[in-house]
Write a protein that binds this DNA or RNA. Structure first.
Length: 524
DNA sequence: TATGGTGTTGTGTCG
DNA sequence: ACGACACAACACCAT
């Protein structure tokens, strides 16, 4: 029996390495490639103009690639649990496929939708292809808990072997028996692509996108990076500059977030480049970066309430301040610290900043200077970043605020010194904060220290044309280290008093490969 | 159960 | 230019 099938695109906005799409095409007589604009995700508040534009571009590219196969993308608007049952009926659907998504929201949504599909006699098939591995298996192999250190994570990964090889894109041959429905009245039936204006963003401040969305651009960008074999083999993340004028890293993260690029395609492409050459290794290598992604994905699945402080068993409980003035100043790039403000400006304009730049501003907002909860910072990043991946964003905020994973809270980034290491002359600051363009080099990181005559000559008076610093970093950061110490003190008391997390972790049935290795060692 | 080594990416100072 | 060290001392993991 041939199927009428919906392939539901959510992430995974690509044709290459898309096993769910492939299984949609198998034994299929009619296919509806579908994207749902979900008001819970795609709204003005949680999605800023840049990520929205990236999504638009990705959908456009996807539709273009589908057209080459004589198919079209169907875009509909509404809650999936309302929309899908209607479509099941309207189109006479017998099968639905999608890529597995580990995010909390997605999992509960998919659970609901699967129930509805069952009621409508629709078979649901999903495949894992957003992550390198099945993260539930990683947790299982680690006795039901997510590894909390990278080292431990790597040990567990070794028992799983390399990720699966990516599969190729479907070809005309793969769809020769598949009928493309409703091609003619596509726009009239309101299945057309959304417009940039649809969310009601202000588009006037929009510059040309430095990182346009889409699978084609993702694969082009991948190849562009992989051509530099020497650079790829010697890549060490901590050695790359956060404030270079053009990115010092691949900027493939947005394409991974939306699934325009398959992580497994990237991983195996790197393995090709490494082949037979001396190369850097995790955690600092490019392979290592993909493993960090996997690490946080795993943690986000294994840790309850991963994206908040309360009832999060791995998160240090800290008495963060509520300070709307400080928060706005940080968000709107008016802290008075040029390095911080330049980063926040680039973030707003381009939707991407270097990982270490994120460190600097995240540390500044939380434990370093402003003592504002990492959850606030997380929300701001989510709206602005093209690669605002739920798991990675929450995980890195936990890390930077020394709430989980990272605990050396006395290592505080200086908003003055850190940037100087890789940009002595403050070129980066001058690019993103043109108001400071004429400031002499010796004051570019600390304009408030310049004598008034110098400020006048530079055409920029601190406190008038550019804000005065909102805190005295040298003083506040020392106080905050003490506050961290207090929070950590309470933490170690709390752990011994309160029982383990209420949720009982699912343990694997037999001994894990790790257990067996352990036993083997013991016998020796 | 105790203990010592380690941790992707700090700063500032000294030599 | 670069390494060593103090800062003050954490959590996690292997043994």
């Amino acid at each position: 029996m041939a199927h009428v099938c919906i392939h539901w695109f959510r992430k995974g906005l690509r044709l290459h390495d898309n096993p769910a799409l492939m299984s949609a095409l198998r034994g299929c007589k009619e296919i509806y490639p579908l994207f749902i604009l979900d008001p819970c995700i795609h709204n003005k508040e949680s999605m800023g103009v840049n990520p929205w534009r990236f999504l638009m571009g990705s959908l456009q590219d996807l539709d273009g690639s589908l057209r080459k196969l004589n198919l079209r993308l169907f875009v509909v608007r509404g809650k999936p649990q309302d929309i899908l049952p209607q479509l099941f009926q309207k189109w006479g659907v017998s099968r639905m496929t999608y890529e597995y998504d580990t995010e909390h929201y997605s999992r509960s949504r998919d659970l609901k939708v699967s129930e509805l599909a069952k009621e409508h006699g629709v078979e649901v098939v999903y495949k894992i292809s957003h992550t390198l591995h099945d993260v539930d298996r990683i947790i299982e192999e680690n006795n039901g808990k997510a590894p909390l250190t990278y080292g431990r994570f790597q040990t567990v990964l070794k028992t799983l072997g390399p990720p699966k090889r990516p599969i190729p894109s479907p070809t005309v041959e793969d769809i020769k028996d598949v009928k493309a429905p409703c091609v003619e009245s596509h726009e009239e039936q309101q299945y057309g692509l959304p417009s940039l204006e649809e969310l009601g963003h202000d588009l006037s401040c929009l510059q040309e996108a430095p990182f346009p969305g889409g699978e084609e651009e993702a694969l082009r960008r991948l190849e562009e990076s992989m051509e530099r074999t020497g650079w790829v083999c010697s890549f060490e993340k901590p050695q790359t500059a956060p404030n270079s004028l053009s990115p010092s890293t691949t900027v493939l993260s947005p394409y991974l977030t939306f699934g325009c690029l398959s992580a497994r395609t990237f991983w195996w492409r790197l393995a090709d480049v490494y082949q037979g050459k001396k190369h850097s290794a995790p955690p600092v290598s490019l392979h290592g970066q993909l493993l960090w992604r996997e690490f946080f994905y795993t943690a986000s699945v294994g840790v309850p309430n991963f994206d908040r402080m309360l009832d999060n068993p791995v998160c240090t409980q800290i008495d963060w301040d509520t300070n709307p003035e400080y928060l706005s100043a940080w968000k709107e790039a008016r802290t008075g610290f040029p390095f911080v403000d330049a980063i926040m400006t680039q973030l707003r304009q381009e939707g991407w900043v270097h990982h270490l730049a994120r460190h600097a501003v995240a540390c500044f907002l939380t434990r370093g200077d402003l003592w504002i909860s990492w959850e606030e910072g997380k929300k701001v990043f989510e709206g602005l970043l093209l690669d605002g991946d739920w798991a990675l964003n929450a995980g890195n905020w936990l890390w930077l605020s020394a709430s989980a994973f990272f605990h050396q809270y006395f290592r505080v980034y200086s908003p003055i010194a850190f940037g100087k290491k890789t940009d002595k002359h403050g070129e980066y600051i001058k690019k993103y904060l043109p108001v400071l363009k004429k400031f002499p080099v010796e004051y570019i990181y600390e304009p408030w220290k310049a004598p008034l005559s110098v400020q006048k000559a530079a055409g920029c008076i601190v406190g008038k044309d550019y804000p005065s610093p909102i805190v005295v970093h040298e003083v506040i950061s020392k106080q905050n280290i003490q506050r961290m110490k207090t929070s950590y003190g309470k933490r170690s008391q709390g752990v011994s008093q309160s029982p383990q997390p209420t949720k009982v972790a699912e343990k694997r049935k037999g001994p894990s490969v790790l257990d067996m290795l352990k036993n083997k060692k013991k016998k020796k």
